[in-house]
Each structure stands twice: as C-alpha cells, then as structure tokens.
Write a protein that binds this DNA or RNA. Structure first.
Lengths: 336, 336
DNA sequence: TTGTATGCGTTATCAG
DNA sequence: CTGATAACGCATACAA
C-alpha cells in the first residue's frame, strides 16, 4: 500500500508538501506541485480515506435508512437523495429496516452510526411514543412522516392534506361509498397510514357522507401483493363500494390488478386513487390518479437539513418541520 | 467524544483490556469484563469506526454502483445485495453511474474507491475495449452483463440464452413478425442489449424466419418513457409486426402503455415479452411475460465472490464467470 | 514556500 | 490474565 511517505520520497519533498498538493492548498510552487502530481500518478497513490476520516472526525458518508429499497417510492427517493448528497460531497450508504420499529431503532442506536456523519431515517414504524429515543446527540433527519412534536428535524409528506384532497377528488367524480386500503396502524392515527385515514375521514365527513369503519381495509404492508389480497377481501365482502383510496401507489397497483381479475372495470365500475405518484403511475393501465408530493423538494430539503445539522455539530437540533407541497394528479383511474 | 481511554479510566483498567472486552477476546476475567461493560454503558461509549478502519485496513463497507437505483430492476437487485452483504457483515454504499461509461470508469478509478473494501459494479456502458481498465488491484466483481474475457470475476445474466428462449416462446405462440426494442448499442453486439439482440436473431433464424433489421427499434435508455416513445415509432412506421421482445421489463411496460393508447390489444393483436421479471411484471395489466433470471442466485453469488476477493486481497483475481439460471415466465401478454 | 513534530482512537505485539 | 508501547496514514499548528 503506497502512502504519502512514498510519494514524498519519490518526489523529493516532504510529507506535508504532498498533503498540500492533494488538498489544493494555495502556497505550493507550480514546479513542486507538478513533481508531486507526477509521483502520485507514477505510484498510483490513493489517499487513505480511513486515515483522513480519523484525523478530520468526518466520514463524508451519510446513512439512508429506508424500509425497503426495492419499493418504487423508496428507490425513487434514494435516487434523489444520492444525487443531492453527491452534490454536497456526501456518499450515501443505504440500510434497509424492513419497516420494523425495532430495526429503525437499531439503525438509530447502532454503534455503526459513527460510521456516518449523519442519518436520514425514513421511518414508518416509529410513533410519538418513540420521540425520546430520537433525542440522540447525532445529526438525524426524519423523512416521510410526521412525528408529533418530535425533537428531530423532519421532512414530511402532506399526509392528511393530500389524503383529504384525494378523497375530495373521488367525491367530486361522483363517488359516495369510498373504501380506504392501508396499513395495519390505520386505525390508530399515527404513522403515514393513520394520517391518511384522518384525511380520508375529514373529506368523507366534510362532504356529509358517513364515516363507516367497514370501509377501512387493513393491509400488512404497503406492497402490491397486499393491495391485491385486500382488494380480494373487499370484493368478497359484498360491501357496496364505488371508489378506493389506497394509502400508496403500490397498494393501488395491486388493487387494479385484482379488480381486473374479477372483471371490475376501472374507472367505469370503480374509481381508484393512490398516493406518492411513483413513475409507474403514469404508465399503468389504467394510469393511476394519485397524490403527488414534490419528491425533489423533499429530498433536497432532507439532505440540506442534514448537512446543516452536520455542519453545526454539537448544537442542539431545532425541530424544524417541512411539509412538502403536493397536488392531486388526475389520470384514467378516476376519469369518469 | 468519549474514547476507550475514558472507559479504561472509569473502569480502572488499561486501554487494552477495554479493547479486549469489546472484541470478545477470550482471556478476560469475568469480573473485569463486567466492570468494563458497565463503564461502556455508563459513558455511552461507541467505538470509533474510522480509527478501527485505519488500524485494520478494512472499512466493512462495499460499494454498489448501479446505473439508476430508481429503476425497478436495480432497486430489487440492491435490496438483495444489501441483505446478503449484511449477512456477511458488510454495509453497502450505493453509487449511481447514470448508465454512462464515464461514470462507470469513474466509480472504478475514483480515489474514493479506497473507502470500500470492494466494489460491485453493475455495468451497462463498459465494453470489451475497457477490459484493461478493469485490471485494477482492487476487489471488483461485475454484475449483470458479460464482458468478453474480462479479467474480473463477473456474475452475468443469461442474456443470449434468455433472449433466445423468449423469442422462441413468441414464435411458439404463433408470432412471425417480431420486433426487438432495446438500447442504442443494440446493433453492435456488446452490452446487455447487444447480447439480447443476438439471442433474438438466433431464435428468429433458427425458426427459419428472416432477420430483418427494420424490426430493430433503438431506445436511448431502458426506461418506461423510452419504451412508450419507441412503441409509438413502431406503430407509426407501418411495419407489420405481431410481437415485440423488449430488452427489459421497464421498456415493455412503456410499450404496453403506448399500445393501449393506440387501441392495439395485447395479446390479441400483439404479443409482448420483457426481460428481468421485476415484481411489477406480475401485476401489470396485462401481466407481462418475461425472462426471469434467478435474482437471489445472482446477488448471492456476486456478494460471495466479492467477499472472497476481499478475503484473499493481493491475490490475482481469477476471472470467474457465473451465468444465472433463468426461465421464461408466461403471463397474459403472450397468452393466445 | 516548505518542513518538523504531534496526535486522531484503535489494536497487535509482547512483556509482566 | 492484564498492561505498556508502537504503529496505522493523514493533516493541523507552527517553525524555518
């Protein structure tokens, strides 16, 4: 392993001159610089990042903890985060928490945390009860969900508002028996799904319709298979339904598929709307109406907030909260 | 920042004893161990990974360079890689190359490379001409494509064979005018797309059909928008086509969408088959027939190969090559 | 403009 | 079983 020592010797200069060249320090004579660069090239020297990290106390890497990177929403989020982070000189290490509260806490508490300059935690399992646990002396930014009064800066989806608008849209299209398909904590008012149920309820009641808990269908996750499974239960339940609001797009794709299997036509027999506006929503058949948060804005804000936290390490975190803009995108699945 | 020093002082032992406790060395008396652990707990000590890395010369992190993490195939691949790597004690940092040859080389050559113990490079832009550049004294495993006689171990898709089987399937379903939709290097016989064209050609000619270059449609990328765009060109070209083989599933989804827009029914008027078998293929409408490589096998093999390379660092890389098993999954898009 | 000395936090080695 | 010492490779502070 070739070190700065070797380069220095080869170039006939001191260790420090090599360091200065590498770090673009101003006071190096042109000739010296060139000699050093040549030596670096000749020896194929690469800086030892571990040593630099040890010296500087920084790693240049931020952690991104998401439930599952293979879900379109998180893949698309990760792409943006990686891009933004790169622009700020950070690499991104991705951790998968599998959407479990334990793993999210683990990601937060793990000793490995010191590997990263900061952590971007896309949480789904943590609730207000865990607020204390987030009180770590470590740069953390929450992404994607709101935690009531959390001590950590977070960038949130417009869960309640977006859901309300989505359901209002369904109602404006003539729906009156609207089902909600979402995740297990749907009924407990915390987490993304819970907040979206709240928006759903506000819209339903705001329109003078009855909030009927038999129209709430619980899923075990936010995935296509679960969407399909629960849509099957909905169909077999015999409950009268003319529209479905899904807690995310992946669920909606599963629902569309299951409805097609049963010969239920969308939008003719049933309206379907999702949440997230993943790329696929534009291309599904029928194309999927959905709530579109501003993904770029969210990723940018999250990385910027985290970078700021990292920069002024030691300072107490101000519990900044940013809620993304959104709009309801109307596509075929709700076009009457 | 609390260090081992602090812990040692608090526990009334030496630095080394703390180190030995942390690393589960055998020769530490029970009582001492407990005292140290208590101190660690009380002070909330966490090991400094940078220092450990400097000492050990390893980082515990591998890099995964993919074109775009927001494409379903790569998201699903990354999920598996991260999982397998975690099982072997490695973290995974994801880099996006944007599918450009420059960025792939950059990922390979960057000084940052020393940040990782090894690199998993999912290449699309590199060709045989770049074989030399891969001759780095650094653990690298190529993923997803074959490079002729490359000096680096690689885990490859069954590009030629899979494509041949896909097209043979189309033919067995009665197709005779089969279009290929794939990426720009389609005609030059390198890269995933080129290899898939080869399989396409073998199947077509093997069935006694004419290989007609007017049936080859070039895309600028492997994305849904490109699939839709090129499908539009196909429709407007007036060329007589009764089936389409797409170089990947994302292109196929775009094609399905565009065909639907033009009232072309799948599979009644046109058969469509893809490549990759991403999760979405099972849920699209119509569901997508496709070539299914063994993703788990590929991810596992890639991580295992890389881990092996890392373990015996210094040794010359044996150019191991592993081609994934595959099968053609028949779904609605080719069910006559 | 360049060089010297020092320490970042950890662990291998070897002595006690 | 435990401890003293010396690196790992780099960059800061300061001296020349």
């Amino acid at each position: 392993m070739v070190t700065m020592h070797d380069v220095a010797r080869a170039a006939g200069v001191s260790l420090m001159t090599v360091s200065n060249v590498i770090n673009d320090h101003p006071h190096v004579k042109q000739g010296t610089r060139e000699r050093v660069l040549e030596a670096i090239d000749a020896l194929n020297y690469k800086v030892n990042v571990a040593a630099r990290n040890l010296r500087s106390g920084r790693t240049g890497t931020i952690g991104l903890a998401v439930p599952e990177i293979d879900r379109p929403y998180f893949g698309q989020l990760a792409a943006l985060v990686i891009e933004r982070a790169a622009a700020r000189g950070f690499r991104v290490a991705v951790e998968q928490t599998g959407a479990s509260r334990e793993n999210e806490l683990e990601a937060l508490a793990a000793s490995r945390i010191r590997l990263y300059d900061g952590l971007l935690l896309s949480t789904v399992g943590l609730g207000p009860a865990d607020a204390d646990l987030l009180n770590v002396e470590y740069p953390v930014v929450l992404l994607g969900e709101r935690i009531f009064d959390g001590p950590v800066p977070h960038v949130a989806m417009p869960n309640v508002e977006g859901a309300r608008s989505a359901v209002e849209h369904l109602i404006s299209q003539g729906a009156s028996r609207i089902a909600f398909i979402g995740s297990p904590e749907s009924l407990s008012e915390i987490g993304a799904s819970g907040l979206r149920v709240r928006g759903y309820r506000e819209a339903v009641e705001g329109a003078g319709l009855a909030f009927d808990s038999r129209l709430l269908f619980r899923t075990a996750s936010f995935s296509m298979p679960e969407g399909a499974r629960v849509a099957g239960m909905l169909i077999n339940s015999g409950v009268d339904v003319d529209a479905v609001f899904c807690a995310n797009d992946s669920l909606a794709f599963g629902v569309l598929r299951r409805l097609a299997d049963s010969g239920v036509r969308v939008p003719d027999d049933m309206l379907v709307i999702g949440f997230d506006d993943v790329l696929e929503a534009r291309y599904s058949i029928p194309s999927l109406s959905t709530v579109a948060p501003d993904h770029v804005q969210m990723a940018t804000a999250a990385v910027d907030l985290l970078a700021a936290r990292i920069a002024k390490a030691g300072t107490a975190a101000e519990p900044t909260e940013l809620v993304s803009d959104y709009r309801v995108v109307m596509r075929e699945s709700t076009s009457v």
